[in-house]
Amino acid sequence: MSVKASILAVLTMGACHGYQLRQEIESRTGGTWNINVGQIYTTLDRLERDGLVESNLTNVDGQTTYRITKLGREEAEAWLTNPLTTGPETKNELANKLALAVTIPGLDIAELIHRQRVQTMQALQGLTKAKRESNLDDPNEIPWLLIADLNIFNCEAELRWLEHIEGTLAKSAARDLNPSQDLLAPAKRGRPARQEN
């Protein structure tokens, strides 16, 4: 989900080819996220199949460039602006999403953080309520309680982290696509052009 959504998020700022997408995502997430370029291309294929991006051959080196469609833009905006459901598997996605979001012009980061905080707090409340209603003396409930407690601590950590990063994110600045990574990037680093028969 995260690779797909991140590609779409970057494409909201303009057309890119595959290698450029990889560079944009990596630089915007602080170099902490190394995506295999092959994964970028297979994801782009799926996105094209689903009508979220469209490709065309405009590069002087014959590279394929990808442009976001209306449907793709809607999906990117939904991912960027809606809070993520809390869970261990979304932790890195949330960090990557916020790292990307702060670099995209026109997004209200404070509002994004607020919505995420509300979502996480509600998840924490839901867990606590379920725990309140559980029977601590019933051994059958122990496995569930262990998981509930883990999720409770994860939610708490996420809330503290959101509070902690709020000030940091306020200082970061949006930036447009990097011109040095534009469509004139060396052909050998891009995907080979499709052979027309």
């Binding site: 509300v118 509600q122 409340q125 839901g126 867990l127 379920a130 569930w144």
Partner: peptide, 16 residues
Amino acid sequence: VDELKTELRPEQFGAN
């Protein structure tokens, strides 16, 4: 500035 109400949303934490 804000108010949150408790809503039990089991799908969020995999309760059975």
